[in-house]
Design a protein around this nucleic acid. Structure first.
Lengths: 297, 297
DNA sequence: CACACTTACGATATTCGTAAGGATT
DNA sequence: AATCCTTACGAATATCGTAAGTGTG
């Protein structure tokens, strides 16, 4: 019993006419006879009653018609779904990103992706960097965007996007806010506003300062980047953030000035599981992300 | 996309090993490679990731595996169901019969049928003769057992089983109950117990007597044959019934004596729709019925 | 070098289309 | 005679199996 035979049978069952059915199946009428005959042999009995002038269904034929029609419909739907998945006309891509990226670059990326592939749903997990790594490793998401994690495993594949140089976030009235660049020492007199742990941004800052022997005295902290920006904008103090957050900080009313002595930098990239298990949709998203960064650099 | 290709893919997806899967599919390993390759081409992308040492599923492959497994299971079930229907291992036969037949001959027939085909369900409609005809014509039942109906249509096919000679049903104490036969005149002094209309038995009796110019004076009537038998058995009067009912009447405590002057007879048979639309199960039931009557005559 | 999948190619099996046949209206 | 399905047979197509190839551990 072949799929083609069943489809042929269904058409004959509908039309009750071999000749007409053959046309619809794009085969000759004798071929249709053979196909039906072969189908009947495979199930062990007659499905169609052929008098020379009319064709009708046996009770078994009716039963096969009902079940077969549903089955073939499901089959066609399955075929179409698979085709659509590969054609990027349908699908799902799940992505995790650390907040500083999710709130700044990601919306534009998703917009561009969505414009190119309107049929593909995008699930975004806006979580801290550590959790981004976990989600990728657990297969909960296909892609994770984060700073290069510490303990990369064999199964992890990290594709760098850019090296992010952290910047000073200053209130408009701060004297250094008009400088071309600012050093840590120039900020030492100000109240420092930080992100709370377990933010990767906080960790990176502490690591670098600790290595440079510079003490960090945190006056306020928040776990929301937006809040930090607002606090700076309100003149409560200064902060340091990845340059990814530039626009978000400006919107919050803060000023951005390059930071040095020491430079704090971190490598932004896309984390995936090795062994190339990306779905077509995931690969497409990956390509869009890469394209956005290669175009800017 | 072929059924065989999908089945092959499902086996590979389970085993994650081409060679092993080929054995299970009874084909060579290269043939398996080709089958998978062809399947992948038909859906437009990769389903399996083959490194030289391991095979794994792409996300699309996982999706196809889930849907495909269900679909193939349904397919196999459908194939098996059709096979079983024709092999008389499963199925349904619906039969209608007038009460005098349904209560007497039919149970044995069904028992014999059931013994031969334990997997086939039998639906019995115990209805008056007119309704039997209707049920057959409406396609509600495949077979109807009844006396030859009056207005046979072109679409009706009536296969005679036997000619039933009606018999007198007498109380044990009735003088004629020991006779070899009895005439209507010999019953004219007794109270007559009849079936109610629309019983075909009642109609046949009235028709024959009316043609012979014999008046019929019904003292009691019931629409249940069993009740008529009991009433006769209780000595309330005499009755006339098809000889089909012989056993039922004896069981009710009545005696049976052949009846003549005039003889009342009617042709019992099986009514089906022409154009041979019987299911395998229906045909089998038909054969059993015919066999039961050809064996007795 | 052994293992596992892929490619190549000749052989086999299936399916197809044209032509002829049979039955009914 | 016209219509509709079936049978027959040669041809195109698809599939298969053996053998050789390729890449990895």
């Amino acid at each position: 019993m072949t799929l083609r035979q069943l489809k042929a049978f269904l058409v004959v069952a509908q039309t009750l006419n071999f000749a007409e059915a053959s046309k619809k199946m794009f085969m000759s009428q004798p071929a249709m006879s053979l196909a039906i005959k072969s189908l009947e042999e495979s199930v062990g009995g007659q499905l169609l009653v052929r008098t020379t002038r009319a064709v009708s269904l046996t009770p078994e034929g009716k039963a096969l018609y009902e079940r077969g029609r549903r089955l073939v419909a499901e089959w066609d739907a399955m075929e179409e779904e698979m085709r659509q998945r590969f054609a990027l006309e349908r699908g799902l891509v799940s992505i995790a990103a650390m907040p500083s990226f999710a709130a700044n670059q990601l919306p534009d990326i998703i917009a561009r992706f969505r414009q190119r592939h309107p049929g593909i749903n995008v699930q975004v997990n806006d979580v801290v960097a550590e959790e981004t790594v976990e989600l990728v490793r657990d297969g909960k998401v296909e892609l994770g965007v984060t700073f290069r994690p510490e303990g990369l495993l064999e199964q992890d594949q990290f594709t760098p996007l850019c090296v992010d140089q952290f910047v000073a976030v200053l209130p408009p009235q701060h004297p250094a806010s008009e400088y071309d660049s600012v050093s840590w020492q120039q900020l030492s007199g100000d109240e420092f506003i930080a992100l709370q742990r377990p933010s990767m941004v906080r960790v990176k800052i502490e690591e670098t300062l600790s290595a440079a022997g510079i003490p960090l005295d945190v006056a306020f902290d928040s776990h929301q980047l937006a809040t930090v920006g607002r606090m700076v904008g309100a003149g409560l103090g200064v902060s340091v953030a990845p340059s990814l957050c530039r626009q978000q900080m400006l919107d919050a009313g803060a000023r951005i000035v390059p930071l040095n002595n020491p430079v704090i930098e971190s490598e932004l990239g896309v984390l995936t599981k090795r062994s190339h298990e990306l779905s077509a949709a995931g690969q497409a998203m990956f390509d869009v992300i890469l394209h956005c960064f290669s175009a800017r650099s």
